[in-house]
Design a protein around this nucleic acid. Sequence first.
DNA 1: GCCGTTTTCGGCCCGACTGTTTTCAGTCG
Length: 575
Amino acid sequence: MTDIGPSNEDIAQILEELALYVELEGENPFKSRAFKNAAQTIRGIDVSLSQMIRQDKDLKQFTGIGKNIENKIKEIIQTGSLNKLQKLRRKYPEGILDIIKIPGIGPKQAIELCRKYGLKTQEDIYKFAKTGQLRLLRGFGEKKEQKVISFLDKLLSQKKSFKLPEVEPFVKQFINYLKEVKRIGDPFVVGSFRRKKDIIRNIDMLFKGSLEEVVPILKDYALQKNGGVIIRSQDKVEIEIKKKPNITIRLIEPSQFGIKTIFFTGSKKFNKELWEFSKEKLNIGNLWDDSIVLNLTEQEIFQKLDIEFISPELREGRGEIERGVKKCLPKLVEESDILGDLHIHTNYTDGRNTIQEYAQSAILKGYEYICITDHSKRLRMVNGLDEKAIRRQIEEIESINQDIQGIEILKGIEVDILEDGSLDLPNSILKDLDIVIASVHSKFQLPKRSQTKRIIRAMKNPYVNIIGHPTGRLIGRREPYAIDMDEVINCALETGCILELNSQPDRLDLNDYYLKLAKDAGVKICINSDAHDIHGLGLIKYGIYQARRGWLEKEDIINTLSKEEILKIISNKRV
DNA sequence: GCCGTTTTCGGCCCGACTGTTTTCAGTCG
């Protein structure tokens, strides 16, 4: 029997939901955090927990999973859910977890809004706020009401959306189900998922097959997931599963598979440009429906158009067709080009593994080097390091380096950029580190002018090598802070500062658009995992996706270079 | 909840910010 049980991501989501309810219950806050930590750990594990349980393997080997959570995971895998969670869901109004997601409203106020005022969904809150009633409540006022309104204005107007890593396991499992269990021929994912966009609203898939053949299989699958199937037309079926993106399945004539693959991979803008191009090039009316492309594969169609094959990640209408015609598309970076990770948090601060453990994992990943970059002292909440602690860490790294084979551990820091652009640590300590990442972790609301000045001042410090997550966005939760990216890019070029592509799934910062801007200007990028445990090193793959969308080649990225070459670049800036 | 352990229970994430409750609770990073 093929694995159709809960994926690790599913389990992580259930534990996260539990964490929220535990918070609502007002239980020991550390309990809630334990569930969140476990969820985070599980996201990073690349073996299926369902499989591990079947093989009777011990889950307690993972940090953050003890006896209790292990039992909960077993229950999730065996029953698809958690009794405790079901009870809690019944205890509170359905929308309460969405209410907590509104910035400025926490568990205490969410409960009060529900219990006292009967506001049970985000829509309820929105209406209440719009009529000026929210500001009258205890703990609210005009400003807070406005904040709530502007957040919900944006959120309620858009369709449900998902981060790529959230849907990846779901899609994989679905394909596996079709191939292994049902032996459906060649399910093929297209659309934004194939283009590896950071946000996915819908999964598009192509099948060769007939409605009669496919629908019962899809219904069977949807049933197992408590979802439904909608037949939209003779060649289009949609699967709806709660808390997952819809899957749109299109049934394609085998002779048209190639051209439909291009069409449904998109993007719209790319399609329009390709369509225009084909009209002239091949002297045809409609590329999507012309006999000239029948029975051709996607590759063959590009050949026919005399265009170099354009990777799906590039198909956004940003000049890729023109470059394809000239046969000079970028040779996009691959994960195997990456030789090391330069942004890692250990248990000195908010990371969950030791330097030693990271080193071992990095060796297994085939890295030549890693750089340890814990937080600086201002971030007290995570035990940010002061000079003394850094000295201690430097000593430990040097001692490990003496004993360890096959990898070099570099000494670094992720130092906070303070409000005025000065740094949270003096140069006297920064100069003793191999790599300094400087990041903004506070005062996100500064006006554009001041925020830009702040970052530029940091970049001009000779010891700052990399600007961490340069726009500070948290996908779906926090907008990027206001900065003049042109100015930042220019300054990076002038100072030799490197911009980070942070691979955390909710950051992916810089985004694809800015990456291309930076690349075109000649600014170097560093793709980092920002790992908080050893499994987090694997997140680099999402950074790679984004890098490819941003046209990046191996040459644009510093951590494709050897350690010696990187250190040379850094010492150049310090002169 | 988990972890580490001097194996049985105490420590774990604490301080700044916000808006308004005027002396602080709730929220956030």
